[in-house]
């Protein structure tokens, strides 16, 4: 199946930005079941975009822009040929042994509640790792309600688990925290999902998790949908948590308040309205990852 993706991120600023730097993990790579036919990143401002690769093997572009800028739009657009692999990831670039993915990170730390939850599931599922992981997948999918209002990009797994609410990122973090607590190497995946309903317009990309099972290798689990990834899941970046696979991490000098709007379109045919459509998501005040302030 050929999937078309267009992902636009538009920033607007109250005051002109003097300079900006961003790390972009927005480009998928090939592996079994995923072949990138065409992919490009476009900017509506003049800047330098330096391609590279991070230590996890993700494609990493460093973007530097000099102001004054009052807005910036980053458009990612491409086509990926997808095949269903039953959620199993083969032939991907692996830079680390699976055991690295047992590391704890602040976002994926299992607190007592997640630890108890993980042990309860594991107790029911028995010794088969795959069964345990499916148990976690089902339980997290049913217990945590998908809700875009309660959490943000800094929400930890334990906070989301306590709220019992969150977005795909939060559900993935809970899955990772629980699986790692059980000694199963697990990682975060950021990407795109072509929805099974006809709604091609989305407000954000998608996220899920991959766990390492002896004999099978890396297997995907999408707790937001309660399924293993299918041919509709395009893998873009992986990491220990959201921060390692985040599509855009940036910092800027000046600009005061920032507004960020995201528009993601994922469809299995080139959508008729792709050229002129203006389905922007609700503007949100983006969290500034890091800003620099100077004595006036």
């Amino acid at each position: 199946m050929l999937i078309h993706v267009r992902h636009r991120t538009r920033y607007t600023y109250d005051h002109p930005v003097q300079s900006m730097i961003q790390a972009l993990r927005l480009s998928p790579r090939n592996h079994e079941g995923q072949y990138v036919r065409r992919w490009q990143i476009d900017l509506d401002q003049e800047g330098t975009l330096r391609p590279g690769e991070d230590s996890f093997g993700n494609v990493l572009h460093m973007l530097s822009l000099d102001g004054p800028l009052t807005s910036l739009c980053i458009t990612v657009e491409g086509e990926v040929e997808m095949l269903d692999t039953n959620g199993i990831v083969r032939g991907a670039l692996e830079k680390f042994p699976a055991d690295l993915y047992l590391r704890e990170t602040p976002l994926t730390l299992a607190d007592a509640a997640i630890a108890d939850f993980a042990h309860e599931i594991a107790g029911k599922a028995g010794s088969n790792k795959l069964k345990v992981l499916h148990g976690l997948l089902g339980a997290i999918h049913s217990e945590i309600v998908f809700d875009t209002e309660q959490t943000d990009t800094a929400t930890t797994a334990s906070d989301a688990f306590r709220l019992k609410q969150g977005v795909c990122q939060d559900l993935s973090h809970v899955f990772i925290a629980a699986a790692r607590h059980l000694g199963i190497p697990t990682r975060y995946v950021g990407g795109y999902l072509m929805r099974s309903d006809d709604n091609i317009h989305q407000e954000a990309g998608h996220a899920w998790a991959e766990a390492h099972v002896d004999g099978l290798g890396w297997v995907g689990f999408d707790p937001a949908n309660g399924i293993c990834p299918t041919e509709a899941h395009i893998r873009v970046a992986t990491g220990l948590d959201y921060l390692g696979a985040s599509p855009i991490r940036g910092a800027r000098l000046g600009g005061l308040a920032e507004r960020m709007e995201v528009q993601v379109t994922v469809a299995d045919s080139y959508p008729q309205d792709l050229a002129q459509q203006t389905h922007w998501s609700k503007p949100v005040d983006a969290i500034q990852q890091a800003s620099q302030q100077f004595q006036a």
């Binding site: 730097i21 330096r50 590279g52 991490r249 800003s291 620099q292």
Partner: peptide, 22 residues
């Protein structure tokens, strides 16, 4: 470098690690 490590750090230099990598 808040772009690579603690994203809330105000003490570092955004992009420093990329310069280091380069």
């Amino acid at each position: 470098d808040p772009l690579v490590f603690d994203p809330h750090s105000m003490l570092g230099v955004p992009g420093l690690f990329a310069a280091y990598t380069a």
